[in-house]
Design a protein around this nucleic acid. Structure first.
Lengths: 263, 263
DNA sequence: TATAAAGGTGAATCCGCAC
DNA sequence: AGTGCGGATTCACCTTTAT
């Protein structure tokens, strides 16, 4: 199978083109269906640049569930028996996604909490600061016991203590955050590379094939390349593909094992 | 309405006896025994899950969903417009519970992560240490904007910084853990009082009525009493009720406000 | 050149009342 | 239901500018 490429088109359609039992790892960052209604102002009266993309808007819970069921069915079909899948979400969608995954026969291995070191505060003091996102890590079924998990590597990465399901990671900002020609963020929801690093290091071997059905600006592909893995991306917006391709092509040196094994 | 009492009987039946719009806060720690063991450990079936197994699992999930839908419908009915509900769970059940709550019209305010300081390690090295449980905090609907939230109190409690949705709390062990006459833990899932303290302090006023439909050994009642709130417990096992009643009766002094306001 | 101050920003379901 | 307006409301990190 051809790898290290980005497929342009509808997520579900492209997934259907992939043969059964061929993928080692899937990382999926689907739309969250945030349902934002009003403009939010900071205390200094500037506006918060919220997620206002059309790809995040769904008519109803039912429509969202139908969409997620469809892509998750394909994901389960193409996973190897030794493979696993990670899906990230917030409280807006992760409960629906998790329930659907259970219904489809996925077997939850961990619910990992991305604990944001520098989350955006709750400006109006109406709730607790929303400081996390959730990753659900699943094997293909309860019977696939031989999923890849590099336990010792993650322990070493974590200072010789067993890594827990809580990951302290900063938001993707500054240099790492890709900007458009207008100087603004190129994608509303770019994920930090550290997050993908842990996902890929923990649950793949070298040269494994990693699929990301919501490729965006290509964080999964970039980290896969740096870690010596193969990737397949699916993305419906050509603009994001162009950015991702350029980003990945510009990577010339891989991360040395000493950067992560010995940390 | 009579308060500070424990109702003995079926959770859903007892909930039905409570009038509409009368409860200020609900804390629910439902069971998550989905009866999957017979499926999981069935001999001679270590291959891929077949159709029959998927069906079995669906039946089991379906039963759990029906149960949760029933008690959550009653909870929503009895909540005041200014009230809110907290439900705690692990990855085994919280996704199903969260999805059901959304379907019933509850409005998620936060998903709070109980980050266990001293979780049980994963002895086999097959997964990340499961270090969290999740609490879903909801108002009655998206339109009930006047839910109780003591923002400033929680900020003060948190060292004058906005409290986030991640709570570092120890497991309930040692002195606090109630033991039976055999010296073993009286209840398998007793929650730490610190957890309930934050729930109750953040989302009730003094003298408010707090309902716990899965009362167990009465942590909710104990903390409610110490903080000057009223409680109603529902519990189906008389053994737990006896322990809880004794526990609550033995509380003679309330927590001083200085214990939490000034921390 | 080094340090300090100022400014920008992040998947956000973020107000309440009067008219 | 929609609009308008008074009033209360923020944390950590990064970049840029100033001293």
């Amino acid at each position: 199978m051809q790898t290290n490429m980005i497929l342009h088109g509808d997520c579900i359609e492209k997934l259907k083109e992939i043969p059964d039992n061929t993928i080692d790892l899937i990382f999926a960052d689907p739309p969250y269906n945030m349902q934002l209604k009003n403009i939010l102002y900071r205390p200094n009266n500037t506006k918060v640049a919220g997620v206002d993309d059309t790809w995040d808007k769904f008519e109803s819970f039912n429509e969202y569930d139908t969409f997620c069921t469809a892509w998750l069915i394909e994901c389960r079909r193409i996973l190897k028996e030794t493979g696993s899948i990670w899906v990230i979400g917030s409280y807006h969608n992760i409960f629906r996604v998790g329930a659907i995954m259970l219904n489809l026969g996925f077997w939850i291995l961990n619910d990992v909490t991305w604990y944001k070191i520098n989350p955006m505060p709750n400006f109006l003091g109406t709730r607790f600061t929303n400081a996390t996102e959730t990753l659900v890590w699943c094997s293909k079924s309860a019977y696939t016991k031989k999923y890849t998990f590099n336990y010792k590597m993650m322990k070493k990465y974590n200072g010789d203590k067993q890594m827990t399901s809580v990951w302290h990671i900063k938001l993707c900002t500054g240099e790492e955050r890709i900007k458009g020609s207008d100087g603004k963020k190129a994608h509303s929801t770019q994920k930090p590379e550290e997050l993908l690093k842990r996902v890929i290091l923990s649950s793949t071997h070298k040269d494994d094939i990693i699929l990301d059905p919501f490729f965006g600006t290509g964080t999964t592909g970039a980290v896969a390349k740096k870690l010596g893995r193969q990737f397949i991306g699916i993305e419906s917006e050509q603009n994001y593909i162009d950015i991702a391709q350029k980003r990945i092509d510009s990577i010339t040196t891989l991360w040395e094992e000493s950067d992560w094994i010995e940390k």
